[in-house]
Simulated scan of single mutants.
Amino acid sequence: MKIYPCTVTLLTLALAGCGGGGGSSSSTPAPGTPAVSDAQKNYESVALSSNGGLHYLTGRLGFTTSSSGALSISSGSYFYTDDSSIPQSAANGAQTVSVAFSTAAKTLALPALSGNTRIVVNGTVYVQAFPNQPQVTYSGANVQEVYLATDGKTVVRTFLGTSYSTTALSGLISSSPAELFTGSMLGLITNTINGNSLYNQQASWQSGAAYLKVVRQYVGDTLFVGDCGGTATTGPNVSPCSTTVATVEGLFPRVSTADGVTYQIGDGQIVTLAGVRAWVATAPVQNTAIPQYRVFYQSNGAVYSGTLIKNGTPLQIPALGSAAAQNFYIFLNNAALQSVKSAVNF
């Protein structure tokens, strides 16, 4: 059995539909027309519901071959999009993003999707809402998104875009720009399995097809928390590392089960973070696309574990087929998505 895993974590998937942009301001608008920057125009050219919205591809494909060489797709494979849009320009005020999921391959169902991202805000653990419905506003020439907790009001994290660019697509899908295949999950279908192509290589892009390349960063220090003990939990009540040690100093040395590292107290410093007293490692956690730092923090007589993503950290994902991280995301417009759906052979 040959497996070709190409996955995007839900953390990454949660970013779909979130905009970012930067650039010079547009020319002076007509009286009564809100001014938008070139980057914001690029965002709206795809993100507005009237323009078909943003579509972020996610996939994992596995295949088996019989003794005769016949190809079949493995159970558990998926190839789908996170579809998002805003009803009108954020120049008119904050816009709530509508989010849905749809399969991009007629033979594959959507996988079971869920969210349990937990973030500390002002000393309290909140669960980020899923599906995400960020609120988009324009900040200067950029696009800002805030993500809310399940209570529908607490902001748990914020992203700011620094670049938006659109690329028109025409001609054969197989002749598309290389970054579209290496920078998005569209590259999955370029695999040839035992001589079988996963899409019609003579298929062309529909009229108006394009993709949007987005660069974003975190706004504010963001503290994610997870289970530290042996009990797996959902919701805001996470498992502590210790209920007998009340301060972070008493926890060291500490072997992190999350990353297999033995931390000494001198490997970091104690600070106030997200409303809690916390020890933060000096060196980042290894093998993560987005730079993050191990955290142990004290709360209500116990010590918990988490990770910190610092203010200004770029949003990054592993490049397809590479261990290197890329600092951009690619979204298809609706015409491009329909072209892909028509071209795939599974």
Rank of each mutant, 00 (worst) to 15 (best):
V8Y: 08
L13N: 13
L13A: 15
G22F: 03
G22Q: 04
G22L: 06
G23H: 07
S26N: 14
P29R: 00
G32P: 07
V36Y: 00
V46N: 04
H55W: 12
G62E: 05
G62N: 14
S68C: 01
A70P: 01
Y78M: 08
D83A: 06
D83T: 11
S84V: 05
I86S: 08
N92M: 09
G93D: 10
A104V: 12
T107M: 08
A112G: 14
L113M: 14
T117R: 02
V120N: 07
V120K: 04
F130G: 04
G140R: 02
G140A: 10
A141W: 01
N142Q: 14
G152D: 10
T158S: 02
G161C: 09
T167M: 03
A168C: 06
F181T: 14
F181Y: 07
I189Y: 00
N194P: 05
N196C: 03
S197F: 01
N200H: 02
Q206G: 15
S207N: 15
Q217M: 08
G220C: 08
T222D: 05
F224S: 13
G226T: 14
G226V: 13
T231C: 06
T233R: 00
G235W: 03
S239C: 14
T243Y: 00
T243S: 15
A246Y: 01
A246Q: 11
T247P: 04
R254W: 14
I265R: 06
I265H: 01
G266A: 12
V280C: 06
A281Y: 01
R294M: 09
I309V: 15
G312A: 08
Q316K: 11
L320E: 10
A323P: 05
L332T: 10
N333C: 04
